[in-house]
Design a binder for these strands. Structure first.
Length: 502
RNA sequence: GGGGCGGUAGCCAAGUGGCUAAGGCAACGGAUUGCAAAUCCGUCACGCGAGGGUUCGACUCCCUCUCGCCCCUCCA
């Protein structure tokens, strides 16, 4: 089946073919580890995971690599390409505050002034969130998730190459800059070509900050700075690398190719980050292509508004899962589905109602699995894409990851009665290889704090009351169970309480 | 000002030149129930942001306008 993806590079949907048929090589811009990742970050990471799972669904082997940005970049790069506060220092200050408030547990970060400990703390948190939400690459850490701080040498090699072949220079301020004028294709990804950047800058480019550069759009590759909290020796003085260089280097190093198949990230990374990555990699390799497909996920909104700390709708993954966003705990599968179910290239609105819709679908697919496993004795039959249901599901995915269309096939199918449970289970397994929501194999173990047996006891009491026709008591108990976050159902075997998923 | 993306029912969301505009949620009617929940049956867009144009025919192609989002400064 022909797979088509939207390529930001061409602003059109193209048929996907890997460079080498043995394996699809893809790279995803990962998190910075100065704070907990939020749901917007994870929309992007889950989008990458969806690409990977879809390609695997179609039989491709996929090598997926992601980075972790743990170099302490500056909060305010607009000023002198490295002004403002160091992000690690900001994180250290925040961790100290969070320890006082209990948001960060005492003892979690032994020494908040050690940037490596801060990075490790938030890296662990990210990996835990990613595994909870079923992001495959997170289970391949550290092999396929690379730290910038462990690859400074590769970055320095590429910078040296770029200097020697005329793509980079040392400015009057000692900073190594990439010369955008040396790379005629600069702007081809974003449409922000040099002439347009100049005419459209509208006074945003400050003269004094640009005097050391040959062109206002030249960007930093290495910043000598002895005062920086994280610094490394280099031929250009002790300092730290520019923001863009790590991805160029780590993608090439780990994927082992100058030209890779897919590069993903959030839409905000199109410019300047990915534009600069292309300039760096192509400048160093001499190739005219870095990634053949550039794919970007749109930002999400929260209840119709931009997510921002000041609006109080800025949710981390743990905020949502632990119920701080909506007032009720959310099952990871529900959050996963909610973040992947609308098209990655369309505006997505994250809402409580959306979560409840997703919970209904997760419940339906989970119930289907329970039924099918019982009816088939747990034996799934092998099913291939020639089966009508899987074929329609596959066609939707192959059409630029149309998850909503794919769900439009699967959800009604799940409600039908299935004459051959083994075949249906085979279909569900294939579907779940992509969606990963029924079940979601996750790291988080269910902690039984005695709640289950307490709820079960209430169910028994409710059955007793119903036998006595003591309706008032039965209704009271039902309300109590519901208040604990359960749906109450009546079955021939007695009252059943199911924990609400969102 | 420049570069992009998107606006389909109360909500989410497919369809992208031609049968009656998928599917889900919500809502409503019915079956069922002690009452509910769950389940099952049924109803639910003469319409696809607005206006023009092309066409035998447009939600689907073209133009104009409008609204929303992203980027041009760190940002998924």
């Amino acid at each position: 089946m022909e797979i088509r993806f939207y390529n930001t590079l061409s602003n059109s949907t193209e048929v996907f073919q890997p460079v080498n048929s043995d394996c699809v090589r893809m790279y995803s811009c990962g998190p910075t580890v100065y704070d907990f990742a939020h749901i917007g970050n994870f929309r992007s990471f889950l989008f990458a995971d969806l690409i990977r799972r879809t390609l695997e669904f179609f039989g491709y082997k996929v090598h997926h690599v992601m980075n972790i940005t743990d170099v302490g970049h500056m909060t305010d790069d607009a000023n002198a390409d490295g002004g403002g506060e160091d992000k690690m220092q900001a994180a250290a200050r925040r961790i100290k505050e969070d320890k006082k408030s209990g948001k960060v547990p005492e003892g979690a970060v032994g020494n908040p002034d050690d940037p490596y400990q801060i990075a490790q703390y938030y890296t662990d948190a990210f990996l835990s969130d990613a595994r909870t939400l079923g992001v495959k690459v997170a289970f391949e850490y550290p092999d396929n998730i690379l730290h910038a701080t462990k690859n400074i040498d590769v970055m320095q090699e590429m910078i040296a190459t770029l200097i020697s072949n005329g793509h980079a220079y040392v400015g009057a301020d000692g900073v190594v800059y990439y010369s955008v004028e040396s790379f005629p294709a600069y702007g081809s990804l974003s449409g922000n070509t040099l002439d347009r950047l100049l005419t459209g800058a509208g006074g945003r480019i400050s003269e004094e900050n640009q005097s050391n550069k040959r062109h206002p759009a030249d960007f930093m590759l290495w910043k000598p700075d002895k005062t920086h909290i994280m610094k490394w020796d280099s031929p250009w003085g002790a300092g730290y690398p520019g923001w863009h260089i790590e991805c160029s280097c780590m993608a090439r190093k780990r994927l082992g190719r100058d030209v890779i198949d897919i590069h993903t990230g959030g839409e905000d990374l199109i410019f300047p980050h990915h534009e600069c990555e292309i300039a760096q990699t192509c400048g160093a390799t001499g190739q005219d292509t870095f990634a053949r497909f550039w794919m970007h996920a749109r930002f999400l909104m929260v209840e119709g508004e931009k997510m921002s700390k000041s609006k109080g709708n800025f949710w981390t993954v743990r905020d949502v899962l632990e119920g701080r966003a909506t007032g009720i705990k959310v099952h990871p599968a529900v959050l996963r589905l909610e973040l992947i179910k609308s098209h990655y290239r369309a505006n997505m609105n994250f809402t409580k109602k959306g979560l409840q819709d997703s919970a209904g679908i997760v419940r339906r697919l989970t119930d289907l699995r329970t039924r099918l496993e019982a009816d088939s004795g747990g034996k799934a039959q092998p099913v291939d894409l020639s089966h009508p249901i899987l074929k329609q599901f596959a066609e939707a995915l192959a059409d630029d990851l149309n998850v909503a269309g794919a769900l439009g096939v699967i959800v009604p199918w799940a409600a039908e009665s299935h004459s051959d449970a083994g075949v249906a289970l085979g279909i569900l397994n294939k579907v779940n290889d992509v969606l990963a929501v029924a079940p979601l194999a996750s790291e988080t173990a269910t902690i039984d704090d005695g709640e289950a047996s307490r709820i079960q006891a209430l169910c028994t009491q409710m059955d007793d009351a119903r036998t006595r026709k003591d309706w008032a008591t039965a209704d009271g108990i039902r309300k109590e169970i519901q208040a604990a976050g359960y749906d109450v159902k009546t079955s021939p075997q007695g009252t059943i309480a199911e924990k609400r998923l969102a």
